[in-house]
């Protein structure tokens, strides 16, 4: 998200990956375990309109710090050292554009010989429609959003030669939907602050970890996440020290300590709504069963109205 605000991102929908991508690079992700139907539906074995042979019609490269089931099933596995995403993306940019680089031919970057990167750069340029699918191994590696910024720059520059796109392999349910709604309602996708009566934005300053680390909040409403399981211990301790209201359908590691727990109908099961897929395609999720509990939306609406009319 932050990287997109500096370089933008050239991307495509998953159907384009399926129909056109003849080069698929899985970078720092393991969809065979984290997104189990991804490869069969969109990115590996699936037959696409212009990739009628399916798996045979695609060259698949996996870049990761360790072997996984995804790297095992790839045509090529490039095993890199942790903390080298930025360096390798920087190198690929230079190689794709034919720039003079400052290292010897027998040097290694990210623990991988230069010639391997040269071959990959050539493969990228030779592809008709290439995509990089990148995951937590990129965004949580040393450099964080700058890694994505550098990948974004690479992807952008490859478009001087061919079509080439990047897609983040996002998880965490409808996180894309949350970014979209925040975007159109506040102008910013995450980390929005309303202290002054209008939206302001600054990740690091107004995002959860920073706010909790600096003890800048004195109450919290928590929706659609389980901080007890996902946040570091000191952040959880900071939350436990303040009043919290928690909307959640299941018993989990947070329900035990939240000040108020409001059980809600699980979205997509007992409450309908819009789900934004990782490629930003909006889908309708339907209500399949009745729940005795209200939806998140109903709870928030009633809290808002109670405050407004207090």
């Amino acid at each position: 998200m932050i990287a997109r605000q500096q370089v933008g991102l050239a991307t495509c929908t998953l159907g384009e990956v399926k129909n056109r991508a003849d080069l698929v690079i899985f970078w720092g992700c393991n969809p065979r375990e984290s997104h189990q139907r991804h490869q069969a539906r969109y990115s590996a074995s699936v037959k696409g309109q212009f990739i009628p042979e399916g798996r045979k019609g695609r060259r698949i490269v996996a870049i990761d710090v360790r072997p996984t089931s995804t790297t095992a099933a790839a045509d090529q596995f490039i095993q890199v050292e942790p903390g080298s995403t930025f360096e390798t993306a920087t190198l690929l940019r230079a190689l794709v554009a034919g720039k003079r680089i400052g290292i010897e031919e027998d040097a290694k970057v990210g623990g991988v010989p230069l010639h391997v990167w040269r071959e990959l750069a050539e493969a990228i340029k030779a592809a008709d429609y290439g995509v990089i699918l990148f995951g937590l191994g990129v965004t949580h590696d040393r450099g964080h959003d700058l890694n994505v910024e550098e990948l974004g720059a690479l992807i952008r520059e490859v478009n001087d030669y061919t079509r080439f796109y990047g897609l983040p392999m996002r998880g965490h349910g409808n996180v894309t939907g949350s970014n979209q709604v925040m975007g159109w309602q506040t102008g910013y996708p995450i980390a929005v602050n309303f202290n002054r009566g209008y939206p302001r934005y600054n990740p690091g300053e107004f995002s959860v970890l920073g706010l909790l680390a600096r003890e800048e909040v004195d109450a919290a409403i928590i929706i659609a996440t389980d901080p007890g399981a996902h946040l570091p211990g000191d952040s959880v301790a900071a939350l436990q020290a303040i009043p919290t209201i928690y909307l959640e359908p299941h018993v989990n590691t947070t329900t035990g300590w939240a000040t108020v727990v409001i059980p809600v109908a699980p979205a997509g099961v007992a409450a309908e709504g819009t789900f934004y897929r990782m490629d930003n395609v909006p889908l309708r999720v339907r209500k399949l069963v009745d729940s005795p509990f209200p939806s998140d939306e109903e709870v928030l609406r009633s809290i808002k109205e109670t405050i407004l009319h207090a």
Binding site: T90, L91, A94, K99, I101, G102, A107, V109
Partner: peptide, 8 residues
């Protein structure tokens, strides 16, 4: 720790 895109 310079990047490969820097040259002496």
């Amino acid at each position: 720790e310079l990047l490969p895109t820097f040259s002496y």
